[in-house]
Design a binder for these strands. Structure first.
Lengths: 216, 216, 216, 216
DNA sequence: CATGAATGAGGTTTCATTCAT
DNA sequence: GATGAATGAAACCTCATTCAT
């Protein structure tokens, strides 16, 4: 019964703990996740977690901030960069950018986590709403408004249509982690999904849909 | 010393308990909800809950089944009834039906609950997937296939497009319970939301969009 | 392995818990006493303590208040009652009253507990100081002042002499619980102790000591 | 990046640690004092304490011994030196000596510490009893006996009266650390206190009190 | 049936102690 | 030697569940 070798890795620990906590919080929810599980997944012992985070709730806050912060600026930069393009192209790129960011990273679990814990931690919901939701909505609204002004997009309630634009992407994020019950279904390639959505959505939005185009 | 209000008939108890449990499970999650809170919300004492449900987990199962069962047949009946109509009308009615059912009833919280607890209770996810998700997908797929066959809808991956059709509805269900952080924004009328979605989505799907139509 | 029979005694529990907690807090100190030990001494299980007291610290507060409250009025009443007597007799009775109250009851441990925990719970020290220390000092000072005014007691700093009057009594309280290390010494009869103190102290205080009297 | 102040000579470490530990043990009690607090107060890191003391309990033992040892011989030497004087003068000097030793040094906290921890560490109580209490009592008893033999002091239970002689001094030690709740009261000059005690106590003890003397 | 006092397994958190650096 | 990151036993406290009333 040999005790495992003790390792001192002060630099790497917080990130490892945040990653472990994020995954478990998303998979099981905050309340159903035990600190010891987080510790084990990060390869440390129970007590070590508390060297880096004051409490379980503080860990949750840190998890959310850590997931949100690095991505805050990216979207705005992208719109800026693509400002020369046509609204249709910008909208397409923007949504593609979201979808890609979410498809890869563990970030995909964040909406589910926020939605699940908003009831118990309102300050978390507020933080996310102010720092993520509003920014994204603003980006979408401005692209839509420009498209309408230029006469490419149909007139519409831009806030509402902005929501509709990202809703399928976020919904798949929140839903896709469900353990595939039977493995019967092909796991839905994210690329096909986003392309189909873009095609349908933009065609629905355009004043003059590109005439001879297939939906898929 | 006034006598307490006459206790309700015992037949009503299970329904009241299920309703209380549903609301709290959706709002706080399963693990973060205490049996005593459920009892209190249903107006009974802690021990009474166990007279009707074997355990907390059994209560969860009952909650989900109770929410699912009464709605299972409704959709199929509707499609049956509307079989004479054009696919566009049927699709529109079907989605409207979903949206309405969800907007009114407490059923709206179910997807969030399932998504949140699927990780901890896979059998729940399976049950929901088999009894709800697959049926709804099937309904949508069949409508879409008929529309394509008739030449009204563009050719597409019907499964995928079916998902896209309900995704915004479900997403709003899962998201709308977030405590509105600042009250700044109007709470998004469900009618406007679903109408805009239908308009955009069906226009994107049609081979020949109705030419002179506004998006809102 | 039979589980002990469960008893429902809502009325008696708080007092039993307070008594158990008091004894252990005095014997071991607050921090070194485990809630489970208190529970066991009171004949209940770990969780039961928390049905009656919110937290360990709340239990400490309750313990002190419960020990202090019933005795607050007694002393004042006594001085009132004996107001017709000579100051010497009143002082003697007052100190005897203190000594007796402390000798019998578990109250004897209170000064030690307060002294030990004052550093960690300043509000406790304040409460005790205001409600007990000041009142007792006031009683003593008033008796001493009357004695001086009447010309029976020598002039003195009454506050200081008042402290000297009770100091030995309280000191024995705080010290007597020490486990008698060797059993060599007779355990010091409280009666002899208090009588000797009174004799010495009052003789030291009187203007005209009763001449032919032995110290013991 | 300035180099930290040169670390103290290692010879000084144990004394600094003992001092830090003593203060904290007295102020908070043994169980409520964390090793890290002791380390911090001594200006070293957590691990360093264990280089000098095997365990927390060993540190407690060392603290007590360190406080006791240097004073053990002093009292006996004093009595020896003053053997030529009258018993009244010797008793007065002896008590004054105690009071002064306690008033200055941090030694004052020792009785409180012993009283508080005797329940948890009986061997500590025994050690203190054998090495301090008994010696002091013996000193007092011998002075009192000589005074009685010479006919200056009244006949009495010398053990008991010996206790009464030091009780107020020790009581003030144990009590005076209480955080003055309101600062209302003047902090009681130790000199006035001991002088008043000596005056009252010795007058009560003498066969022929010095006739014209004030109590303060 | 209904209640809520009682239980005790289990979770979060603390902290004496160890040990890699 | 000195440090402080790491450990894990043990403490406080919660809450699903039981059962006497």
């Amino acid at each position: 019964m040999s005790t495992p070798p003790r390792q001192r890795r002060k630099e790497a620990r917080p990130a490892e703990l945040l990653a472990a906590a994020f995954d478990l919080f998303v998979a099981r929810g905050f309340a159903a996740t035990r600190m010891e599980d987080i510790a084990q997944r990060a390869g440390v012992s129970k007590g070590t977690v508390f060297l880096y985070f004051e409490s379980k709730q503080a860990l949750l806050r840190a998890v959310v901030e850590d997931a949100v912060l690095p991505h805050l600026a990216a979207g705005e930069a992208m719109v800026e960069a693509a400002s020369g393009e046509s609204p249709e192209v910008v909208l397409r790129q923007l949504l593609l950018c979201f979808a890609t960011a979410l498809a890869d990273s563990r970030l995909a679990g964040l909406p589910k986590l926020i939605s699940a814990e908003a009831g118990n931690f309102p300050e978390l919901a507020t933080y996310y709403h102010d720092n993520v939701v509003l920014r994204i909505r603003h980006l979408l609204v401005s692209v839509l408004e420009r498209g309408i002004a230029v006469g490419v997009f149909r007139a519409c309630d831009t806030t509402l249509v902005g929501r509709l634009a990202i809703a399928p992407i976020l919904f798949e994020c929140m839903w896709q982690r469900l353990p595939d019950p039977c493995g019967q279904e092909p796991p839905l390639s994210p690329e096909a999904f986003i392309q189909t959505h873009l095609d349908l959505f933009i065609r629905g939005l355009l004043v003059n849909p590109h005439s001879p185009r297939k939906a898929e």
